[in-house]
């Protein structure tokens, strides 16, 4: 007799998360809540971009924010102080991403009554968050100029899962030899449907285009 018995499983590790994510997406749709998953590398200006965007939209939409980080609550406090909207800090406890179950727990901590738009600021990382579906209606990412226009080549999965790519810190492009046209070309190689929006969150330039895209997205979901 063999020393071990083998039980076949043959199951993708991501299968359960994908099921959870699809269920969450449907629930949110039924409730009329639009969830945006915002991803980027650390330091790309996610929080600053969010503050500017929220201030443009807060008279038109009821917005809430979930800030996911490994530790601290600096981002959630910053958002609350700068915009006055409901924000919550999620700690991933060392994990490099959020999955659908963690996203659900975060949503449970918010008062979603009358809320149109929830923005999830994912952990700053260009690898792992792309692999785990959070249940969001759409994925967006911010690429900042100092990171370089070649990032779509180096982190293909991130760019292939995003519906919109915001390119931030355009004001410093000349100092970093950042080639916007090349960047757009590389993004199109990974994802021909991705919308590219160049902005400068510091001066507010271009943020309106991102806010407009988001507003249309939320309105489309509701109809």
């Amino acid at each position: 007799m063999d020393k071990v018995r083998v039980i076949e499983i043959k199951k993708s590790v991501f299968a359960e998360n994908e099921q959870d994510a699809n269920a969450l997406r449907q629930e949110l749709k039924d409730r009329g809540v639009y969830l945006l998953n915002l991803m980027s590398a650390p330091g790309s200006g996610k929080t600053t971009t969010l503050i500017k965007t929220i201030n443009l939209l807060k008279d038109k939409l009821r917005i809430a924010v979930m800030e996911a980080d490994i530790d601290s609550d600096v981002d959630a406090v910053k958002i609350k102080e700068a915009t006055g909207i409901q924000s919550i800090q999620l700690h991933t406890g060392g994990m490099c991403h959020l999955d659908a179950e963690m996203t659900r727990q975060g949503l449970d901590g918010l008062d979603l009554d009358g809320v149109d738009l929830v923005i999830l600021e994912n952990v700053g990382n260009l690898v792992c968050p792309a692999e785990f579906d959070t249940g969001a209606a759409r994925n967006a990412m911010i690429l900042s100029v100092p990171e370089g226009h070649d990032k779509p080549l180096k982190y293909p999965l991130m760019f292939s899962v995003c519906d919109v790519v915001v390119i931030n810190k355009m004001d410093v492009a000349p100092y970093f030899d950042f080639d916007l046209e090349k960047c757009k070309e590389y993004i199109a190689m990974r994802n021909p449907n991705a919308k590219v929006i160049p902005i400068c969150a510091k001066t507010g330039e271009g943020v309106e285009a991102f806010a407009q895209w988001l507003l249309e997205q939320v309105q489309t979901l509701k109809h």
Partner: peptide, 29 residues
Amino acid sequence: GKTCPHCGSGNTFLLKGNEVEIKEIEVPN
């Protein structure tokens, strides 16, 4: 990579190699 070495086309897709899958478990008898 993404460029076909036979004809130079970039119109290619991954057949396999993206798996993160639990195949089986072994249980002591």
